[in-house]
Write a protein that binds this DNA or RNA. Structure first.
Length: 192
DNA sequence: CTCTGGATTGAC
DNA sequence: TCAATCCAGAGG
């Protein structure tokens, strides 16, 4: 099977553009437990000028990778119990990233079921913290290059969706009017 | 050092 | 509708 990986340059665009562009591509993770993969079906963009972004108040130890070169993983811990996974976008020096909110499972589905303690396929990756758990992503993956299959965590080229839907981001208290959430219009695997 | 709130989830 | 659960970031 062919498995073309997205090049680093394809990530060097604005977060809002990358958020749309990532839909239809495939996130892959290889671990000791096995391989898991899923089609990206829902994303959100976060950028430095945006009050809802972690990068809004400048670079800190937690968000530093957002200010580095594009195509790397930004993993953060939140609510005292969950991790979320982002793809760094844009140019180095400008803090921005795309949050992956939902995947359509395509490989390692039984492993996802074990990790999630959940049988229903639509419940495996239908949320930012759910997909991190199902894919076996941890804080150890912080900073990993997603354009390099050797890192074990990468994005494979998929198929662009027929129709993309747009709406406000979820769970934020700032900039609630900004329409920076994108999802594949007819997907049954989105969150919420 | 203390305090506040969070890019969530699942149970009630 | 709400608790769980703990850390990052801001302010003193």
């Amino acid at each position: 099977m062919t498995s073309k990986v997205l090049s680093q340059s394809s990530y060097s665009i604005h977060a809002a553009d990358l958020a749309k562009h990532l839909l239809g591509h495939i996130l892959v993770h290889r671990s000791d437990e096995g391989v898991t993969a899923g089609i990206i079906v829902e994303t959100e963009a976060y950028s430095q000028e945006d009050a809802a972004s972690h990068s809004y108040r400048g670079e800190t130890p937690r968000n530093s990778v957002m200010f580095g070169p594009a195509g790397h993983a930004y993993v953060y811990f939140t609510y005292g119990m969950h991790y979320c996974f982002n793809v760094v976008s844009g140019q180095a020096g400008h803090g921005q990233a795309v949050l992956l909110r939902a995947l359509q499972p395509v490989e390692g589905i039984d492993l996802m079921r074990q990790r999630r303690k959940q049988d229903k396929e639509k419940q495996l990756c239908s949320g930012p913290a759910k997909l991190v758990q199902a894919m076996g992503i941890t804080k150890q993956d912080y900073g990993k290059p997603l354009f390099d299959p050797g890192s074990g965590l990468y994005i494979r080229q998929g198929t662009a969706p027929a129709e993309i839907a747009v709406g406000p981001r979820i769970g934020i208290s700032q900039a609630q009017d900004v329409q920076w959430r994108f999802w594949i219009a007819d997907s049954a695997f989105v969150s919420r």
